[in-house]
Amino acid sequence: MKNRLLWPLLALAALLLLNLIVTPSFFSLRMQDGALYGGLVDVLKNGAPTLLIALGMTLVIATRGIDLSVGAVAAIAGAVTCVHIGTSGSAGTAIAGMAIALVLCAVLGLWNGFLVAGLGIQPIIATLVLMTAGRGVAMLVTEGQIVTVNNTAYKQVGAGFLVLPISILISLLVLGLVAFVTRKTALGMLIEAVGVNPEASRLAGVRSRTIIWTVYVFAAVCAGIAGLMISSNVSAADANNAGLWIEMDAILAVVIGGTSLAGGRYSLTGTLLGALIIQTLTTTVYTIGVAPEVTLVFKAVVVIAVCLVQAPKARAALSFRKVAVPS
């Protein structure tokens, strides 16, 4: 278990070290208007939505599923809230808007769950429906425009600070809750059981369908909160670009963290590390000044390297002493 997290941890450390060498000021922290200010804080703030979505994704993947619709759901959440807020500056309207958006996201999660657990459609296809349709829905809500709002209460979700960015506090709170609920109760084990074999679990008395349904709703609500963060960070809802490709980042975070796409096993700490690696990578590209033309190649090389060292064969080759030690 520990060994599995070692490599992602090393990758993260290596990325941070690269930043330290190229831009030593990256690690400097100071207080700015009651908020912590520095490169590391940016990583946490901008990584919060990815982390949150990756958390939902971890549980979905643990049941041997996948949710491609999270980016679209995030866009819908931002769109609905911003349209509801409109020109209002009151905190009440903002909270009401966010509540409406999250309820809607839960409904979208129910839809995904219905397709997967109810109708038995393969998850990748079932969620692909919402991935494409969802963006259309978000565009309809915003009428294709970027909706700008000016609401201090709403701004707190994505750009606010309680010393640390509020967005990362929310994500870490959700991480804590998930860890508590799934690891301190039997729920985590049941989710893994469903991932290993849904039919066998059902015969053993596990309510497979309810569990699958629940993880999709949870993933959608996580995506909704992430969507609120993304839109609140710039005080605008951009139906086209908000959360674009974030499902890929989330899946990548989950995989880097050592959760198997085949289901039946997951690591929340791994997902946390995975999300941090991805955001650090993006921030590194900006800070060390990688030319925009080669950005994607740079990212791909890092991701391939991280995945390679985690491959069973590479791990066996790298742990010299522990090869073939039967217990």
Partner: peptide, 8 residues
């Protein structure tokens, strides 16, 4: 995009 501009 706005979020792109902000992050960079």
């Amino acid at each position: 995009t706005r979020s792109g501009g902000k992050q960079v």
